[in-house]
């Protein structure tokens, strides 16, 4: 174990107390077909959006989807780092991090495989919306920190990042809205899953692992273009298609609140 001289020494191994408690897996939907937090399967979670949270950044945003909290800031466009080649199109650099205290299990300081994968999905979703050809030789930096992960963190992060880009006056074809659903059996699509409802392969027995998973879709609502799809879990392709459809609809519905958030912010500046 190499020690990091720039941080204080920590114990080599430590375990979350949740490992040692007895837990019995309960069904995601109770007999009254309600979810644990009292929502209907179809019911979305309330979303709170704010622009300009980080005053030091060119643009920033804060999104809260049920208890999931995501903060995002955008810097640039600025010069690309020297060693990179001359590029006629701009470069989008994203950084996606879970705060160490944001999950049930403590996160390390260095990005793990999950974080780098989600970062890549975020970058690819945003690059379809940002007019990168308008920013030759420059880079735009997007930093996302998940402060609390209560499920659907990727969806919240994509929405927050696009909002922050708009707040930073970076030219975009359209805003990007993202939503996710938990597929639970053939008929049940739980919208905006909480952490407890997210898909963890190891929690399921082999029998009911089929048609079970989670799907996240990023959408440009006015252009009706899908700019990101990520799914996990084994399901029939018809179920997957239906889940993507559900996500698309939900992301479409996010357009109005996103627009409201951006225009209300504009009002403040004009006054």
């Amino acid at each position: 174990m190499p020690t990091d001289s720039r941080r204080l020494p920590v114990p080599e191994v430590s375990h979350s107390p949740e490992l040692f408690c007895s837990s019995d897996p309960t069904s995601l939907i109770n007999d009254d077909s309600l979810r644990k937090d009292g929502r209907n399967p179809e019911e979305i979670a309330g979303i709170f959006m704010q622009c300009g949270t980080v005053s030091q950044a060119k643009g920033s945003s804060f999104c809260e989807l049920h208890k999931t909290k995501v903060i995002c800031s955008v810097y640039g466009p600025k010069d690309v780092e020297q060693k990179e080649d001359f590029q006629m199109i701009g470069k989008l650099k994203c950084d996606f991090k879970f705060a160490p205290f944001s999950c049930h299990k403590r996160r390390g300081h260095i990005a793990d495989l999950e974080e780098s994968e989600l970062c890549e999905v975020l970058t690819q979703a945003l690059s379809s919306s940002v007019c990168l050809h308008r920013y030759p030789k420059s880079q735009i930096e997007v930093y996302v920190i998940v402060l609390e992960n209560n499920g659907s963190a990727l969806a919240a992060a994509i929405t927050a990042a696009s909002l922050a880009l708009a707040d930073a006056c970076i030219e975009q074809y359209d805003i990007v809205a993202a939503a996710s659903v938990r597929v639970f059996g053939k008929e049940n699509f739980l919208r905006d899953p909480t952490f407890h409802e997210e898909y963890f392969p190891h929690q399921l027995s082999k029998k009911n692992d089929f048609n079970n998973g989670v799907v996240t879709v990023a959408l440009m609502p006015t252009l009706n273009q899908v700019c990101g799809v990520l799914s996990e879990g084994c399901m029939e392709s018809s179920v997957l298609q239906e889940a993507i459809q559900t996500c698309t609809e939900e992301a479409q519905n996010l357009y109005a609140p996103l627009r409201k958030c951006l225009t209300s912010n504009l009002g403040d500046i004009n006054v």
């Binding site: 990168l132 990520l230 799914s231 879990g233 084994c234 399901m235």
Partner: peptide
């Protein structure tokens, strides 16, 4: 059956 889907590219 599908197990995992991801969109790649910008």
């Amino acid at each position: 059956h599908t197990v995992g889907v991801r969109k790649m590219g910008g």
